[in-house]
Design a protein around this nucleic acid. Structure first.
Length: 155
DNA sequence: GCCAACGTTGGC
DNA sequence: GCCAACGTTGGC
């Protein structure tokens, strides 16, 4: 069992969207390292911190809840859709460049764990999302950090 | 294979 | 909205 953090702008796709949809293919990732995590490292049942980036006063940047990996790796269909923002003309149908997994809604925190909380909590030292300029939209998280955020900070 | 130029991410 | 940090592209 592994633990992850995925980023999304709440204006783009929020935890409430996932709650409503119950399950969604995590499409649009166009970074090789992030893709490799989905393709090679994730397993069904892995737990995922759902992080809203680019927050504002109403919706501060931070972790808003938990999702669960719900499928094996599948081709990201947006790469073949000319009308989609994430269309990739170089990708071939028989050898898709971009792979994703499905994410299922698990829970929304009663109160979000904001980035400043994460940054200044000594118990979360080493968390990737704390490091400056960490633009990676899918990150591994240690079990210790995951549990601490879920069981302590989100209550 | 280097690296400058470019586009994007994301905190502030 | 700004801009630093970063990943990717492409010329050489």
């Amino acid at each position: 069992m592994k633990y992850w953090l995925i980023k999304s702008e709440s204006s783009c796709y929020s935890i409430d969207d996932l709650k409503h949809d119950k399950k969604t293919a995590w499409t649009g990732v166009r970074n090789f390292q992030a893709r490799n995590f989905m393709r090679d490292e994730m397993n069904i049942g892995d737990l995922v911190l759902f992080y809203h980036s680019n927050g504002d006063k109403q919706n501060p940047t931070g972790v808003y809840g938990i999702a669960k990996v719900a499928s094996k790796p599948i081709p990201d269909m947006t790469q073949f859709d000319r009308k989609d923002d994430h269309y990739d003309p170089k990708s071939q149908k028989d050898a898709p460049t971009w792979i994703c997994v499905e994410m299922a809604f698990l829970e929304k925190f009663t109160h979000p764990v904001t980035l400043p909380e994460i940054k200044f909590d000594p118990k979360l030292e080493g968390m990737l999302v704390r490091t400056q300029g960490s633009r990676l939209s899918i990150q591994p998280v240690s079990e210790k950090h995951f549990r601490y955020i879920r069981e302590q900070l989100s209550k």
